[in-house]
Design a protein around this nucleic acid. Structure first.
Length: 467
DNA sequence: TGAAATGTTGGGGCG
DNA sequence: ACGCCCCAACATTTC
């Protein structure tokens, strides 16, 4: 009798350029399994926005593949499904979250004791974190040499075509996606998500080709402008593996070649952003406590302030600084925030309010559709100054100047902060100077000049260790 | 992937 | 015509 193989889907919710799925399809009839595991990741189980996306993405993937849906600890569920189906092998794409190596090890042991083989593949990254190392054989701690090493390494493989696995026909118990309650129940905050996103492999491919057609040529300067739309917006698709970084890389390289030099600057800039993702994963892989603890030890003594009221104002977009509030409200309404504004908002929380970066990371984890344990942890630490290749401690964003520089007409602020719509551009980033206009928009919760000096003083306390 | 403070220069107003 | 001052614009240093 034919024995099936199990394709264990994780953050690889696609059919194209999928090494594990290709191999599974070549090995036999396939059971496509997705496990909703809220236990293994502990406090980093999927947040609300991620669950919304996951629901939609699984719905899309199930149009191409017959999915078996199960809840529980992934290793236990895989053991059950092997037992129920008599599967001879398990295939999966490796993952780099701190809890994943032990989980993958347990899955391997389960396979061995059940007499099945276990096959692990890469593909979530361009370069496996073990492969990019400096001259001493150590992982890089600084982005620039890391990126140079990536560019010097072999060009990432070309993406492969869609797999066409033959599905195992026998019945395997599956749960109903709707029963997972991944969509918001009572307070429906996800209305604004619908018009913003098209989760799934097809949506990802549409986004990539749209970016190459409309965004890439202006990417170098335009990527910093939240009032315009030159960013790729591929991050949630990459996070869920609806598209692979190799597909993005190859598509941009192809566009660069066709443009005969005209897209070289913009294209390189974009490829370097892909490499920031790789860098974050390399750091996380080698320093698994990155989500919890400062990369730079001396920050363990930093005088963070426990200030729930300040955190709440920041979360609600009521700080009184228009560019910060616009970003926080965009986040709540759409599940994303423009990259430039993320830096400004994160700097405000950690430097102006001195609230621990972990609080910001937790809020982003719950609210971002692209919430990613590597990028989120590494980027928050970068802004806070305690990360690998951190922003220098004295680099403190001025929310007024950043607003005026990157949202010069105030169009982004007007879109997300309706209280300020009537303000003229010359005061929209400093509404407290527009005395003549009545509005219920709050006064600044803190004076930035004061906050800057306070942050510098706090950083000076631990500076001896930094220098 | 910053900002503020401080230093320098040079043009124009004006006695 | 000259020297002086003011200050914008730019450069450098410091946090």
């Amino acid at each position: 009798m034919n024995k099936p193989v199990i394709m264990w889907f994780r953050q690889d919710l696609r059919t194209r350029d999928h090494a594990a799925l290709n191999a599974a399809a070549a090995a036999g009839e396939v059971i496509c399994l997705y496990v909703l595991d809220d236990e293994t990741p502990g406090q980093w189980r999927w947040g609300g926005a991620s669950r919304w996306w996951l629901h939609r993405s699984l719905r899309e993937l199930s149009k191409d593949l017959r999915l078996v849906l199960r809840r529980g600890r992934a290793d236990a569920v895989i053991a059950d499904v092997i037992k129920e189906s008599g599967a001879k092998a398990v295939y999966f794409t490796r993952d780099y979250a701190p809890w994943s190596p032990p989980l993958e090890h347990r899955v391997k042991e389960i396979c061995e004791s059940a007499g099945a083989t276990c096959h692990r593949f890469g593909g979530y990254l361009l370069h496996e974190p073990e492969s990019i190392r400096n001259g001493s054989g150590e992982p890089y701690k600084v982005y620039t040499p890391f990126s140079r090493a990536c560019f010097a390494a072999d060009e990432p493989r070309l993406p492969s075509a869609a797999a066409k696995p033959v599905m195992w026909q026998r019945n395997v118990r599956s749960e109903n996606l709707l029963d997972w309650n991944l969509l918001p129940k009572h307070l429906d905050w996800s209305k604004g998500f619908e018009s913003e996103w098209l989760p799934g492999e097809e949506g990802a491919r549409t986004r990539l080709s749209g970016f190459i057609e409309h965004g890439l040529s202006q990417y170098a300067e335009g990527r910093d402008r939240p009032d315009q739309s030159f960013t790729s917006r591929l991050s949630p698709h990459l996070h869920w593996g609806e598209i692979s970084p190799a597909q993005c890389w190859a598509a941009v390289r192809g566009a660069m070649a066709r443009a005969q030099g005209k897209l070289d600057v913009a294209g390189e800039k974009y490829l370097k952003e892909i490499l920031w993702r790789e860098f974050s994963y390399s750091i996380l892989h080698h320093w698994p406590n990155l989500p919890e603890a400062p990369f730079r030890q001396e920050f363990a003594a930093f005088p963070w302030r426990n200030d729930p009221d300040a955190l709440k104002k920041w979360q609600q977009g009521m700080t009184g600084y228009p560019i910060v509030d616009a970003g926080m409200r965009e986040l709540w309404a759409t599940g994303t925030m423009h990259n430039r504004v993320r830096m400004i908002a994160a700097s405000f929380l950690t430097k102006d309010l001195l609230v621990p970066w972990t609080e910001g990371a937790k809020w982003f984890w719950d609210t971002l559709v692209d919430a990613d344990i590597a990028s989120n942890s590494a980027s928050w630490q970068w802004v806070a100054g305690c990360g690998a290749d951190a922003a220098p401690y004295f680099r403190i964003f001025n929310p007024v100047l950043q607003g005026e520089k990157f949202d010069p007409e105030g169009a982004y602020v007007r879109r997300w902060v309706p209280e300020l719509r009537e303000l003229p551009s010359n005061v929209i980033h400093r509404p407290w100077e527009a005395h003549h206009i009545q509005s219920n928009y709050p006064a600044p919760m803190i004076d930035h000049g004061f906050a800057r000096n306070r942050a510098l003083a706090a950083l000076k306390q631990i500076k001896t260790a930094i220098a």
